[in-house]
Amino acid sequence: MTTVMKVSGLSKHFGGVRAVQDVSFELGENQLLALIGPNGAGKTTCFNMLTGQLKSDSGSILMLGKEMTGLKPRQIWRLGVARTFQITETFASMTVSENVQMALMSHEREMFGFWARAKDRYVPDALELLMQVDMADQARRPCAELAYGDLKRLELAVALAHSPRILLMDEPTAGMAPGERKSLMALVAGLVGKGGVSVLFTEHDMDIVFGHAEKVMVLDQGELVAAGTPAEVRANPLVQEIYLGQPARIDQSGDEGAADA
């Protein structure tokens, strides 16, 4: 299996808090890889470094054979890496379709166009993408009116707009109803199955993780403590300890929440 992303020795400190500590892993082509861990484990910090939102203290991030550390989010996106946000980030003053059209226009480098009508650009393509996430019937609605689950699906459509090779999803199903969660992840798994895109996602819902991921990594207090197939990870005593907890551990977990903020 070819590797599309290779992270080595990634670290980040916030003051005295070691949010992410020497994290290394690889994402294979057409792989659905999950990154899990309790609150404050450093998942979002890790994620923000991968997407260029946050500068790492040390380590390297190779994606599609290119070094990504130090690049801005928009440069990383240009190289074929898309992302979705834990709390949705959409353009509230635009329609659903326009949100997708923005990504398409940006991909075609039309953002500094001063003449064309933005509204009319790539409407069919946007509709096709919205169809993929089952949102075509809402294409003309103002984005501000959407239910949260629909926003999450819209984010996925936006992320898919430039046919990314890598898709990074930070808690893709957070805030969705249980039924919606399953269908969204089934959709993502389907995309990966069709080939062309590899997905790294963080998730809290263990049913989702163990139901869909090919490989699961466990982050605890900033460090990767386990990795393997869902079955392996599930059987790992350390992981069980982290998730089920032991009275002695609770006393030590002082830095909870600091890194995920």
């Binding site: 946000f85 923005m102 039309e110």
Partner: peptide, 21 residues
């Protein structure tokens, strides 16, 4: 035009705008 939409995009969510290039 796309420029104006880009401007509005940055206002609505600069995070999202930057992450679509």
């Amino acid at each position: 035009a796309p420029f104006g939409y880009g401007l509005r995009a940055g206002r609505d969510s600069s995070l999202r705008a930057e992450s679509i290039g």
